[in-house]
Simulated scan of single mutants.
Amino acid sequence: MGKTKFIVPKDGVGDATLQKNLDWASGQGIGCDPIQSYVVCAEPATVRYPATFAVSHYHRRKGGIENTCDFRSTAQTTTKDPSHGKCKYV
């Protein structure tokens, strides 16, 4: 059985681009309640964490299809779980 894949922003991607990814993924009906309230998956308070949650959750909801993870070359796959604190990606 393969390792679970997560989608994370590439290093160096700016906050404005991360915000666009977050807004787009959230608008796809993926159930982003934990990030829309900026409570659980928005800590620490940077756009990187909620954007990571949104793109990873979108990818998972689409069945892990490879072409749902690129986000205009601003995201990449990893097997390292980006969960932190109470924010769980699995």
Rank of each mutant, 00 (worst) to 15 (best):
M1T: 09
M1H: 03
M1C: 01
G2T: 09
G2I: 02
K3C: 00
V8H: 00
V8G: 04
P9Q: 06
K10H: 12
K10E: 14
D15F: 05
D15G: 05
D15L: 03
A16P: 03
A16L: 11
T17K: 13
T17H: 04
K20E: 15
N21F: 01
N21K: 03
N21R: 11
L22H: 04
D23K: 10
W24I: 00
W24R: 05
A25V: 01
A25P: 07
A25R: 00
G27V: 07
Q28R: 13
G29I: 15
I30S: 06
G31E: 06
C32N: 03
D33S: 08
P34N: 11
P34F: 04
I35A: 05
C41R: 06
A42L: 13
A42P: 02
E43H: 09
E43M: 15
A45T: 13
A45F: 05
T46Q: 11
V47G: 14
A51G: 10
T52M: 10
T52A: 09
F53Q: 08
A54H: 01
A54T: 02
V55L: 00
Y58W: 13
Y58D: 05
H59K: 05
H59G: 07
R61C: 03
R61T: 13
R61A: 15
G64F: 01
G64H: 04
I65L: 10
I65M: 13
E66Y: 06
E66N: 01
N67V: 00
N67R: 03
T68V: 04
C69I: 05
C69L: 10
D70Y: 05
T77W: 07
T77Q: 02
T77A: 03
T78P: 01
T79D: 04
K80F: 07
P82M: 06
S83E: 12
S83N: 01
H84A: 10
H84S: 13
G85Q: 14
K86P: 08
C87W: 13
C87P: 08
